[in-house]
Design a protein around this nucleic acid. Structure first.
Lengths: 176, 176
DNA sequence: ACCTGAACACCGTTCAAGT
DNA sequence: ACCTGAACACCGTTCAAGT
């Protein structure tokens, strides 16, 4: 609070005229962050809407890695934070998903995206350097054998592959 | 630190004999938490290994919701935290995934699981009560229409559905 | 209405000193 | 080797008082 106030050229106590507590202020930051996602409207292609939602959220994480952490364990319910959710759900419904399946699809996409973005911000950190190579070889032969792949930069590819996996699963489900 | 020390019947400064800082202590808690997952060994059924990994991690979140938050933004690399990862990767390799595809599959599963568990701990909070019903109806018609489904308790079903989606996507990919 | 001084009850951490 | 007293430089927050 003191730092924020300092940035505004004011004393810490002044902030309490405008927010109830530090936690409420951080809630506001998180909502503001989600509000940065530019609305895409309802897409006629549900898979494209999934890709758009996911890459928008990941973009937030890359632009504001510190603040993104706040989204990790907060349930947002402000108007600005809900627009992207509305658009995605509407696209899924328009794409032929039943209400129950649209919600399930949304949750799967949101969970993957949130988890991936947080992992990326934290650093995946399974490269060979971060462990004693000896115990690694003995106890974790597979991790050792795959260390080259695990160490590769968390890149666009690995993220895209994940959402395509989910989209592929959703397509299969939709056809049944 | 003062609270932890109190729990141990000791003064706060004593802890610094054993840990470098509060952050290091929290790293230790996170690693201990992951270490609570009982090893399942290498499964001959990769899909079953995916289900086991995912439900183990989610079980952690439900048993220790507060501590689980620590996993949200930490990259773990301790031996105890790596055993479940080793087992899953080994099962995927044994199941016929190439090194690159096994790593991609692991990342997708881990990201979804982490994201879902964190959302569940935070509370999904998209029920009708958490928003002014008026603005909801006007600006977010789809959320409003789906509010009954969105409000439903984050249950076993919604989680299972998500991993089955990923497993289904992985199966399709594996066959290509 | 908005800001501030002074104060309260805390933090994590260091360091010299104790046993 | 392990613990502690005292102290430092901080926190978030309240409240009466200022303009």
């Amino acid at each position: 609070m003191r730092a924020v106030a300092g940035e505004l050229g004011v004393e810490a106590m002044s902030l309490y005229r405008h927010v109830d507590s530090k936690e409420a202020l951080l809630d506001g930051v998180a909502e503001q962050l989600m509000g940065e996602i530019e609305p895409r409207g309802v897409s006629s292609d549900w898979a494209e809407a999934v890709r758009g939602f996911a890459s928008s959220v990941r973009g937030l994480a890359r632009e504001h890695p510190q603040a993104f952490t706040l989204l990790g364990m907060r349930a947002l319910a402000s108007a600005s934070a809900l627009q992207p959710v509305e658009d995605l759900l509407a696209s899924l419904r328009a794409g032929g998903f039943t209400p129950a399946r649209a919600v399930a699809a949304y949750r799967a996409v949101a969970a993957f995206t949130r988890g991936y973005a947080l992992s990326e911000v934290a650093g995946f950190a399974l490269d060979e350097g971060s462990l004693g190579a000896d115990t690694l070889g003995d106890r974790f032969p597979t991790i050792r054998a795959l260390s080259r792949h695990l160490a590769s930069e968390p890149n666009q590819g690995s993220f895209r592959a994940g959402i395509e996996l989910i989209i592929s699963g959703l397509s299969a489900e939709r056809e049944r």
